[in-house]
């Protein structure tokens, strides 16, 4: 139950708009940055961010002052991006979320250098779901809990996806350092 002082619905339209500008519109650049990474092109990213902000305004009266506005906006945006991807999924081939096949990612790819160019290429080769988790947790530094809410998945899934994303990146960038994979030595605490 929101405190009345934090309830935007009780404010006049002018005050709500002022709040919206001060709290939500300041995140446009961050939203656009992430949307550009997650969408296929900048035009699509612009559309997504604009739709995100308009939707945020539509439900602005439900936003609780004092809570994390950036996370709230990201949640709306990720939801829109997922919907758009779903609508395109009939025509585009995608890799399953539940059974990521690392071999598909690594197969037939030339070895990459452990440098900036290599990292960008490796990142682009990751399945969408793994790239998303890297953007949200590593780059935007959302917590596992916040990322789980945005992606509508359990926290354990966030943890395992991020781990696998890192493993994939490591294997793409450092293919020779795989000697520890099957090490089953038991260590005592």
């Amino acid at each position: 139950m929101a405190n009345d002082n934090n309830n935007l619905a009780l404010l006049s339209t002018e005050d709500q708009l002022e709040n919206f500008e001060n709290l939500a519109l300041i995140h446009t650049q961050i939203l656009l940055r992430t949307a550009t990474r997650m969408c296929t092109n900048s035009s699509e990213a612009d559309d997504i961010v604009q739709e995100t902000l308009l939707r945020a305004w539509k439900y602005w009266h439900t936003f609780e002052l004092g809570s994390n506005c950036r996370a709230w906006l990201f949640r709306i945006m990720i939801n829109l991006i997922h919907r758009r991807r779903e609508s395109l999924s009939n025509t585009a081939e995608h890799i399953s979320v539940d059974e990521p096949n690392m071999a598909n990612v690594l197969k037939f790819e030339p070895k990459l250098e452990m440098d900036e160019h290599g990292a960008l290429v490796a990142l682009n080769r990751l399945p969408t779901e793994y790239r998303d988790i890297i953007f949200l947790v590593l780059i935007e530094e959302f917590s596992y809990k916040e990322a789980a809410i945005m992606l509508n998945v359990p926290m354990g899934t966030v943890m395992s996806r991020l781990h696998r994303a890192r493993q994939m990146m490591k294997k793409l960038l450092c293919p020779d350092n795989e000697d520890n994979e099957d090490n089953e030595n038991i260590a005592t605490a």
């Binding site: 519109l25 446009t28 650049q29 900048s42 900036e116 990292a119 990142l123 780059i139 490591k170």
Partner: peptide, 30 residues
Amino acid sequence: VSNLVKTVIREADKTDLSLVARSNKINSLV
């Protein structure tokens, strides 16, 4: 790997000069 990814992406963001103009345009439209 994590540090490299962070560095690469943040560098790429810095070089993307269109972000400010695009976000201003979006704010104006909204």
